[in-house]
Every structure is written in C-alpha cells, then in structure tokens.
C-alpha cells in the first residue's frame, strides 16, 4: 500500500468528482468522469504491481477497454444534445422534474 500513489489516486478521484458535480458543461463533466475511472485504475494497478498478481493487470486492461466503450456512448449522447440545438449544459436539460 504505497501511500504516495494512493494519495495521488485519491486526489485524482476527488478532482474528478468535483468536476462532475460542480461544472455545468457536459464535456467537462465527462472529463471528470474519466478522471475518476483512471484514479481507480491507478490504485488498482499499483496494488497489482505491489502484489505481483496477474489478475490485477487483467482487470486494469479490461477496465480501460470498458472505459473506452463508455466514452463512445457518452460522447455520442453529448453530440446528439449539441445537434439538437441545445447548448450541452445541464441547465438545458431540465424538462423532466417533479
């Protein structure tokens, strides 16, 4: 449990979280999201390296692949919002409420 790497990963996670919650633009939020995923991957990778356990590395690779798939879906949705004429901000998407 390397404290340096874990603190880096924690801060990365919190930054990502802050971006996700505070920013209004969808793209910035998406970046925050990816940041959180990468923080988790970093922590996972460090533990795998420390333990020399191959399962951790397999997990890291697979998670990166899934994050890529997520990115595809996320970006297409943001593009669709943009094409629909509305600015890609959370404020534009407030019709569903109550």
């Amino acid at each position: 449990m390397n404290p340096l790497v874990w603190s880096a990963s924690a801060t990365l996670f919190l930054f990502g979280l802050a971006a996700l919650i505070l920013r209004r633009e969808l793209l910035a939020m998406f970046l925050g999201l990816e940041l959180m995923v990468l923080a988790a991957v970093l922590a996972l990778g460090e533990t795998a390296a420390r333990l020399g356990d191959s399962e951790g590395f397999v997990a890291v690779l697979l998670i990166l692949a899934i994050a890529a798939a997520e990115a595809v879906v996320g970006l297409t949705l943001i593009l669709r919002v943009h094409w629909s004429g509305r600015p890609p901000e959370t404020e534009a998407l407030r019709e569903l409420k109550g």
């Binding site: 996700l20 998406f30 959180m36 988790a40 922590a43 996972l44 879906v73 949705l77």
Partner: peptide, 19 residues
C-alpha cells in the same frame, strides 16, 4: 444523458470500491 452520467458515476464509484 442523465441516465448516462449517473450510471457512469456509479460505475466509477464501483471501480474505486473494487480497488
């Protein structure tokens, strides 16, 4: 969009938990 962001955030949290 709402479903995507919420779902992915949850996924990220799961990953952190897994780590």
């Amino acid at each position: 969009v709402k479903y995507f962001f919420a779902g992915s955030a949850a996924g990220a949290i799961f990953l952190m938990g897994m780590a």
